[in-house]
Amino acid sequence: MNKKKEAKFYQKEENNLIKCNLCPHNCKIDNHKTGLCQVRKNINSKLYSLNYQKVSALSIDPVEKKPLYHFYPQKKVLSFGSWGCNMSCIFCQNWQISQEKPQLKNFNAEEIIEIAINRNIDLLAYTYSEPTVFYEFMLETAQLATAKGLKNIMVSNGLIEPKPLEQLVPYLDAANIDLKAFNNDFYQEQCNANLESVKKTIKLLVKKIHLEITTLVITDLNDNLAELEALFSWLAEVNKQIPLHLSRYYPAYNLKKAPTAENKMKKAYQLAKRYLDHVYLGNLNFKKTASTFCNNCGEKLIDRNKIKFENLLKANKCPICRTELWGEF
């Protein structure tokens, strides 16, 4: 267990440099140094994954916590993550495992899948930290999970090159991508990343697997309604049925701005509904925004407002107009 694992997607350069081709940073890494993610290291002109088979957290959640609202609602999912990240968001909610090295436990793919099967769980989620930067471990686990009949979920910032993503996609069933803003200056200044790469990931995934999007609405940084409207409009052009989760910001890591105003969240929600069929609010107590409605006739299809969850779909279709609901149920 935890043998040294050579990384995928790199090339050797002159003077013992290595160019990593996993994500759009394309880090050029000197000998005995790591890339920006902290977990891919040049050791004598070979690139190694430092977080292979190393787990920072492993727990059982409802799939709605990913968040996924249109993918087997109320099913349990075995979620795990490692450490490291290829972004450095100043508002990171998981900075203890993205920007620092936490306490880690050793698990291999077989052990994780055995835990899921023994608990009668058939969904796995690669989450908590950025799964792109534990790519080798994620791919190996997802391949074995697929062979065992389990489904795989990636919860990601979307900053990954097309080639590794295309090799991973055959073993993915769903993803939630964090679309942090619709402004490249925001991505560069607040996250050390770029918007266009994330947009490419979204456009590739939506054609292949079930996809949902999360946007954290942050006070004074990305809460401009005109900019949010551009995000909603672009997402609708990709596919207006993609579920969008608008999440309220609270102070975290190095950003101490006030929590996003509830009124701003309501306005963003109403604006998003003009463009998209399925919009949800997160980190708020507005339960009425948690239920799912038919995008054709408006009938309530999944009721998340009651004490007891209720799925009113009939063979994945609206019981009134028979319109099929986007997702897997």
Rank of each mutant, 00 (worst) to 15 (best):
Q241S: 09
Q241Y: 09
Q241D: 08
I242E: 01
P243I: 02
L244M: 08
L244P: 03
H245M: 06
H245F: 05
H245Q: 09
L246E: 10
L246Q: 08
S247D: 06
S247G: 09
S247Q: 07
S247F: 01
R248M: 00
R248S: 07
Y249K: 00
Y249I: 04
Y249N: 03
Y249M: 03
Y250G: 07
Y250E: 09
Y250D: 09
Y250L: 06
P251K: 11
P251D: 12
P251N: 15
A252K: 15
A252D: 10
Y253V: 00
N254A: 13
N254L: 13
L255S: 10
K256C: 13
K256I: 13
K257Q: 12
K257A: 14
A258C: 10
A258W: 14
A258I: 10
A258Q: 12
P259R: 09
P259I: 14
T260R: 09
T260G: 09
T260C: 13
A261D: 15
A261T: 14
A261V: 12
E262K: 11
N263P: 15
N263C: 13
N263Q: 15
N263V: 13
K264T: 15
K264D: 14
M265N: 13
M265L: 15
K266A: 14
K266Y: 14
K266I: 15
K267W: 15
K267T: 14
K267Q: 15
K267L: 15
A268C: 12
A268S: 12
Y269S: 11
Y269D: 10
Y269H: 11
Q270C: 12
L271C: 12
L271K: 15
A272I: 12
A272F: 10
A272P: 11
K273N: 13
K273F: 08
R274V: 12
R274F: 12
R274H: 11
R274K: 15
R274A: 14
Y275V: 07
L276M: 14
D277P: 09
D277F: 14
V279R: 07
V279A: 08
V279G: 07
V279F: 05
V279Q: 03
V279T: 12
Y280A: 04
L281R: 07
G282D: 03
G282N: 09
N283M: 00
N283C: 06
N283R: 01
N283A: 06
L284H: 05
L284K: 07
L284R: 02
N285S: 07
N285C: 06
F286H: 03
F286W: 01
K287P: 04
K287R: 04
K288P: 02
K288V: 04
K288Q: 08
T289P: 05
T289Q: 05
T289R: 02
T289K: 00
A290F: 03
A290D: 08
A290Q: 08
S291V: 05
T292S: 04
T292Q: 08
F293G: 01
C294M: 02
C294Y: 05
C294G: 08
N295S: 04
N295H: 10
N295K: 05
N296Y: 05
N296C: 05
N296D: 07
N296P: 04
G298H: 05
G298E: 05
G298Q: 06
G298C: 03
K300V: 10
K300M: 14
L301Q: 03
L301C: 04
I302P: 07
I302T: 02
I302G: 03
D303C: 06
D303A: 02
R304D: 04
R304I: 03
R304E: 00
R304T: 04
N305E: 11
N305T: 00
N305G: 02
K306Y: 06
